[in-house]
Amino acid sequence: MSDKPLAPAIEGWYTLDAKPHLIGTRCKGCGTYFFPKQSHFCKNPDCESTDFEEVELSRTGAVWSYTNACYKPPEPYVAREPFEPYTIAAVQLEKEEMVVLGQVCEGVSVEDLKVGMTMELVLEPLHETDDDIKVTWKWRPLDQ
């Protein structure tokens, strides 16, 4: 990668600090969390709230399941050439009681993962444009 500036791949979905968080919302009526953000109506069928607060989600969780991608995905994915397989994890956030998908950081393969192990959120490049390096959230084993 070059020394281009870093920019979020998807604007406003995560913080860009050293210990990043996903940015969600929380319904002020019933307490349900949303990621991606929900700010106009609550999806809980028993809640009519339209009032939300932006919150940073827990940045650690437990592996719910995991896999990898051995084939290059179609657009809009921007694949590196030559394509290199990457690992993917579904991670359960305890407080939010939700599962969030994401790539796993480089250098970690499926052999390194187990259901239940603790992961933390990190930022890594997703692809490069003419102007900047787009970064996204990824999961990394906590003890690494």
Binding site: I10, Y66, T67, N68, A69, I88, A90, L126, T136
Partner: peptide, 16 residues
């Protein structure tokens, strides 16, 4: 798709 998650990803998560 932008984040690299295709249909087989989901099937594989359930299988694992």
């Amino acid at each position: 798709f932008y984040l690299g998650i295709t249909n087989p990803t989901y099937f594989a998560l359930y299988a694992r």
